[in-house]
Simulated assay, not measured.
Amino acid sequence: MTNTIIQPEGWAPAKGYANGVLTESGTLYVGGQIGWNAQQIFEKHDFIGQMQQALENILAVVETAGGTAADITRLTWYVIDKKEYLAHQREVGETYRKVLGRNFPAMTMVVVAGLVEDEAQLEIEATAEIIVT
């Protein structure tokens, strides 16, 4: 089986990992995305801003593989501050729909002690099913 590494154009190179891996069967595994931009710079330092950027990063990987938001079948969220997440539920929903629309895949949220990038407030990984032609 041959896998294809998915790297959106213009993104800084991933070091020691892949942003996305597309299998021959069409399953796309999107590595954990955080709230930095294509050049790995944090432009936003608030939870909602970083969440929006992480979701946009996921969508960029999915679209680079030939998919759309509707192809996303699973999201796993890792957040470092449960209270911050809960305090912004309305904004979380609004921001989610702004980026991914009304596609609601299977989701899990895990509260973690920290992430590798100190500035990151959350990390989200995804799985999508892309129709391979």
Rank of each mutant, 00 (worst) to 15 (best):
I34R: 15
I34K: 06
G35A: 03
G35L: 03
G35S: 05
W36H: 15
N37V: 00
N37W: 01
N37H: 01
Q39F: 09
I41L: 12
F42K: 02
F42Y: 14
K44S: 12
K44T: 07
H45G: 06
D46T: 10
F47M: 03
I48W: 01
G49N: 09
Q50W: 09
M51L: 14
M51I: 05
M51R: 12
Q52Y: 05
Q53R: 03
Q53M: 10
A54D: 04
E56D: 06
E56R: 08
N57A: 01
N57Q: 07
L59M: 01
A60Q: 02
A60T: 02
V61R: 08
E63F: 01
E63G: 02
A65V: 01
A65K: 01
G66I: 00
G67T: 03
T68Y: 10
A69K: 06
A69E: 06
A70P: 05
I72T: 03
I72N: 07
I72Y: 10
R74D: 15
R74F: 15
Y78E: 12
Y78R: 13
Y78V: 00
I80D: 00
I80E: 00
D81C: 10
D81E: 09
D81A: 14
K82F: 13
K82G: 06
K83Q: 15
K83I: 14
K83P: 03
E84D: 14
E84R: 10
E84H: 07
Y85S: 11
Y85V: 12
A87S: 07
H88E: 14
H88W: 07
E91V: 02
E91Y: 06
V92S: 08
G93P: 06
G93I: 10
G93N: 13
E94I: 09
E94M: 06
T95M: 13
T95D: 04
T95A: 06
Y96N: 02
Y96M: 02
R97Q: 11
R97S: 08
R97F: 13
K98Y: 15
V99G: 06
V99T: 07
L100P: 00
L100Y: 01
G101W: 09
N103E: 06
P105F: 03
P105L: 04
A106H: 13
A106I: 12
T108W: 14
T108P: 03
M109L: 15
M109H: 13
V110E: 13
V110K: 10
V111Q: 07
V112M: 05
V112A: 07
V112S: 03
G114Y: 10
G114D: 15
L115V: 05
V116Q: 14
E117W: 11
E117H: 14
E119H: 05
E119M: 08
A120Y: 13
A120F: 12
Q121W: 11
Q121F: 13
L122S: 02
L122V: 00
L122I: 01
E123N: 14
E123A: 13
A126N: 04
A126S: 02
A126L: 04
